[in-house]
Structure formats: structure tokens, C-alpha cells
Amino acid sequence: MDFPNKTILITGASRGIGKATAMAFAEKGAKVGLNYRSNDEAAEITFKELPGEGHQLFKRDISQKSETEALINDFVKEFGRLDVLVNNAGISIFHEIDSVDFEHWTHAWEKTFETNLFAAANLCYWAAQAMMKTGGGHIVNVSSRGAFRGEPTKPAYGASKAALNAMSQSLAKKLAPHNIYVGVVAPGFTETEMAAKTLTPEERENLLRESPFKRMAQPEEVAHAILFLASDEAAYSSGTIIDVNGASYLRS
């Protein structure tokens, strides 16, 4: 899977899975656009670490509807075309129904869906408009095992990812005649810098027990699945959801 001179836009690209994906595409010869919301320092570090040349940073808050169109326009203006969109940005907010007030409950649903679903849907729309003008492309949406197993402490997160899966498969059907291929990667818990900082030893131990491999996914393993779905060789896998969860959750 090589991507010589392909243009790739990745949201939430400054750290974790987004950073690993950006590095993997750049190593394969792609020109990468890194979208991030606010962490200038992390974005600059990732940008400087990317191999190759011609990459670009795009600071946009994609939870704002107008920013999604602006991001795609900025990207196309910079690179001339958009070959691959990776919707990786996402948030999760704890909001257990038996312990939070209604204001917290509704806030969690609104903010989670703004980023995890509405932003991804809007970016898919503008990306598809750009791709239809240039003969096609690939969209890869990053979901979660939480879409299937349920998230009792973060139900909005699980629901947003389930909706993202359904949207992706609908778009895979609708966009196929335009040579636009849509796929989904659904990771389990992934070993990121944020996880290392926020998990307690007990939480970490519980997560390690979930997989028979007794470890969490590495960001590079998730990135590998994203690259596969973004490749020309995976065109007939459009509509696929790839689980990357170390057999911690198996679905039929």
C-alpha cells in the first residue's frame, strides 16, 4: 500500500491515532493535511516529525458547521485535490444516567454528537463534493467497539459511533457510482498519550484483562487498518467495518 503524491486530510491529527495515521501515510509518500482544534504545540511537534515534504497544518474547530466547509476549501486550495479523508476526531464525556443532573446529561449528548457525528457528516458532505469533481476518493471514518458493546458510562459516545457506522454504510452505497469508497475502522481502547495520563492503575489493569492478548491496541495498529481502507486495493471493501480491538469484543 503506497500513496505517492496522494493528498490526505486527517482530523484530530495532532496526537494518538491521528498522529500515527499521519506518520504512516507520510512514510508511504502521501502529502498530509493535519487538522486540529487547539493544541498548537502537539500539532507542531507532529508536523515536524512527518517524513517527506509538502505537508500542512489546518487549525479548525470542526464541531462548528461553517468550519467544515472552510477546512475542505482550505485543503483543496493548498493541495489541488482531496484523495482521502480520515474522520478521526472524537470526544467522550462521562454522563452516567443515574448520577448526573439533566443539564450535564443534555450537554454531554449535544457536545458528543457535534464532534463525533455531525462534524464527520458535514466533512463527508464537503469532501464528497470535492472528490466528485476529481474522479473519486476514499473516506475512512474512525468509530469504536463502543458502537456495538454499549457504553453505560458514556452512552452518547456509543450512540454517536453507532450512528457513524450507519451513516458510513449509507454513504458507501450512495457514493459508489462516483468512485468514492467509504469504510470504517472500529478500535478498542488504544494506548495513547492521553490514556497513559488519565487512566488509574486499576482502570488500566481492567482494560488489559479485556483482551486475550492482555494489552491494548497500539495507535500504529489502528493506522494500518485505516491505510488499508484508504488504498486502491481496498475499493471493493467499501462499506466494511474493521474491528481493531484484540478480540476484546466479538460481534456476529
Rank of each mutant, 00 (worst) to 15 (best):
K173P: 00
S231G: 14
A159C: 01
E205H: 12
E210S: 04
A176N: 13
Y157G: 00
V182T: 12
F189D: 10
N179M: 07
S231R: 13
E193H: 09
G183P: 03
G183M: 05
E220S: 15
E210K: 09
K214G: 03
H224C: 05
L207S: 01
A166K: 08
F228A: 11
T240W: 01
M194K: 15
E193T: 14
P201W: 06
M194N: 14
K173A: 09
D243C: 01
K154Q: 13
M216D: 00
V184G: 08
S170A: 13
T190C: 04
R215D: 05
K197H: 14
K197A: 15
N206K: 14
N179S: 13
F228R: 09
R251I: 12
Y236N: 10
S211R: 08
S170E: 10
Y249A: 02
S170R: 11
S238N: 02
P187E: 06
Q169D: 02
T192M: 13
L227P: 04
K197F: 02
R209K: 15
S160A: 11
I180E: 05
V222C: 10
V185G: 02
N165V: 03
L171G: 03
F213G: 09
T190Y: 03
E205Q: 15
Q218L: 11
A176F: 12
A230K: 10
E202D: 14
S170M: 08
Y181Q: 11
A156Y: 00
G183K: 02
A172S: 13
R209E: 14
H224W: 04
K214R: 14
E221F: 08
M194S: 15
I241E: 11
S248P: 05
A159K: 00
H178V: 02
N245S: 04
L229P: 03
R204S: 09
I242L: 14
Y236G: 02
R204T: 12
Q169P: 08
I226W: 08
Y236V: 10
A172E: 04
G239H: 04
T190S: 05
T240R: 02
S237N: 14
A217N: 15
E233H: 13
E221I: 07
A186H: 03
K174H: 09
I241C: 08
I226M: 08
A172F: 09
V185W: 01
A172K: 08
Q169C: 03
G150A: 01
H224M: 07
A195P: 02
A235E: 11
P177R: 12
N165G: 03
A159Y: 00
L208V: 04
L164T: 00
E191V: 06
N165W: 01
Y157S: 00
Y249Q: 05
K173F: 10
A247G: 02
G246K: 01
A223D: 06
K173Q: 12
E203F: 04
T192N: 13
Q218K: 14
Y249S: 01
L227C: 12
A234Y: 03
D232R: 11
A166L: 09
P201M: 08
P152V: 00
L229C: 13
R209A: 13
A172V: 06
K154E: 09
L229Y: 06
L207W: 04
P155V: 00
K174N: 12
